Amino acid sequence: MGSHAAPQYVPSETRLFKPLKVGNVTLEHRIAMAPLTRLRSDDNHVPLPLMEKYYADRGCVPGTLVISEATAIAHEEEGQRSNPGFVSEAQTEAWRKIISAVHANKSFFFQQIWGMGRASDPKHLAERGFPYRSSSNVPMKGIDVEPTALTEEEILQIIQSFVDTAKRVVAAGGDGVEIHSAHGYLLDQFLTAGVNKRTDKWGGSIENRARLTLAVLKATSEAIGAEKVAVRFSPYAGFQGSEKSDSVELYSYIISEIKKMGLKLAYISLVEATGDPGAIVRGDKAINVGKTLDFILEAWENRSPVMVAGAYTPESAAKAVEEHYKHWDVIVAFGRHFISNPDLVFRVKNGIPLAPYNRATFYLLKQWEGYNDYPFSPEFLAAHPEAVHPMTE
């Protein structure tokens, strides 16, 4: 008896390339573009025209789900230079053009929306006359400013801002919104016991720490329909102080409450332990390695698809949908490889090697370089020249 080598999956022959219904749309395949902060907006947090090409090009294979970078729900949550908002008329109009460009390639667009809370740059907020706030006054490592704890009134205003922004996204043509409750940003600052030291109904117990995320999901779903609402969680990340000792209990409770409310969300997006941005971007020590998200998928019971992110390659994504996640409707999100491969889906389907990315250019403010200068494969250009969004530098 010879030893059996592990099966080598050809991505195009796996469930990666089977259609999947997500909310109101049907994807042609199960590779999504992950939400990626890129800092290409102007000084008023309005998306620059070069962003139309970037997003359209990454939706160049019809039926692709493209998720926007995290976008502020209010001007006071535009916590970093050149990240976008979806609040003012100018911002809304700029996003409308981006969404339209993605739709022109017959792909779909979800807007990731967030509050940044204490992950903001306090100097940037102060320059614009906005307060630096969080769930409580626990400072963030590396920032020597203590945030003020949000008042009850401000918390209710944040819920309303998520609702208002979701409505603007849908009015601008978006297929849905992804609520960002991960990676140490505002909603996650309420979930995390080490950050949330409140003693009112918004802090303390798991029920109280989960209250804000659940309130946002409920109110947003009532406003635009649960089938247009998704949510992102990072149960095992330590990025920006988001490490939790009670992840299994906390997220099991959240999933059970979403089900109790009867919300059939478009999808739930989960960052695997291998996808912690602290380890990937900053070289921090990886934590929780080896832990799986299976407890969430089991609790969710395939009510709607689950998106997973975790430094996937085409080969590991194919293996994941055929083996580890074979019982679930899973979408695999690609991030950094989508930056350097506008035609990533085409390349994966046709076995074309992926071009390497240059991390040094990921966050160049407002720049074309490292953004729209990664080439399409010659094979894609020969087959689909019309799908490339025209724009000169």
Rank of each mutant, 00 (worst) to 15 (best):
V345F: 11
F233R: 02
S316R: 14
H327F: 12
I296W: 08
L297P: 00
I254G: 04
E227T: 12
V271Y: 00
G241Y: 08
T313D: 10
A223I: 12
Y236S: 06
E322V: 03
N302I: 07
E322H: 08
T313K: 05
D294K: 12
A299E: 13
F338K: 09
V348G: 12
K260S: 12
G225T: 03
D329S: 15
H337G: 00
E243R: 04
N350W: 11
V229A: 07
S340E: 07
P353M: 11
V321W: 03
A320V: 05
A266V: 02
G241P: 05
W300Y: 10
A273L: 02
E322A: 10
V330F: 09
E222C: 03
V289H: 05
L263H: 13
V332F: 05
F239R: 00
D329K: 15
R303F: 07
A226P: 04
Q240D: 13
R232H: 03
A266R: 01
V271F: 02
D284H: 10
K285A: 14
E323I: 10
I268K: 09
E322K: 05
P353N: 12
G351E: 13
K259N: 04
T313P: 02
V281Y: 12
E315F: 04
A223V: 14
K259E: 07
A266K: 06
K244R: 15
